[in-house]
Amino acid sequence: MNATTNAALPSSQSSPKRIRENSSVAQFLIHVFFVLACAACLIPLILVAIVSLTDERSILANGYSFFPEKFSLDAYRYLLGDAQRLLNAYGISILVTVVGTVTSLLISSLLAYPLSRKDFPQRNLLAFFVFFTILFNGGLVPWYLVYTNLFHIKDTLFALLVPNLLMNGFYILIMRTFFTTSIPGSLIESAQIDGAGEWRTFFRIVLPLSLPVLATIGLFTTLGYWNDWFNSLVFIYDNRLISLQYLMTKTLLSIQFLQSNTQNSNVGKLLTEMPTETVRMAMAIIGIGPIVLAYPFFQKYLVKGLTVGAVKG
């Protein structure tokens, strides 16, 4: 592709901002490349969406296809008919995501702010305390035993809120850097000369000035909670506490489990009533839905956040 690209002569009509040029053939080839690359990203999602809308018999005859013989809404109808579990899972996911993100932002910024105060004597010691959690990790087993044997959070909502997801050393350090560089020390001093206490300074001056970093880290925390299935896998055995992502995991595995036991006549009968293949994919679509729908709105923050996290992490 680059071999065909020759430097165009400097032309008078080039805009001052984008002075770099290349031939229109090269531009065309680059666009072809990206159309293909984007297709590669989207095609799995499109396939799943189409399968979820396919008539079950078309699938049994021809397999999953982008151009099914017959469309049908049976899968979604079936899921709506038994919506109790799905709605419950949605409720759990939303609750955990909202409560978790708010709590996380609060305790993270409360920890990061004193670390950014140059007059706070123990700030380096505490920063090391945070930093060491990034370097060394005790691993799954002791972590699991601390939460199950010491705090007994198995099968409670705490298991979805607290372990690992609530706070992240990287985010604390990013917040601290933001506080240090973007909030002038003189502003804090003058607030305190005016008689504002530490809490007032923090909530009335520091936090309102920190909305960019709170938005970025809040976004990543939200994604972390919403997409989490690992904590459920490890800690949750109670069906009432299954989050959306974990419901996905269970459905994928348990339909398969049923299929490998078809000699049992009851199971076989149950399966013929449920359009298993399409229901499975409809579940996936319902699970992806919120993120894909919300993506255009947070896309800008995501890109910003990724680059911040990478430069200083």
Partner: peptide, 24 residues
């Protein structure tokens, strides 16, 4: 006040990160 601010976060790291380190 600053010490009270850092307290919840420190306790969390103690439970989620430091106890498992000793637990190894």
């Amino acid at each position: 006040s600053l010490w009270i601010m850092v307290l919840p976060g420190l306790i969390y790291l103690l439970i989620n990160n430091y106890l498992p380190m000793f637990g190894t």
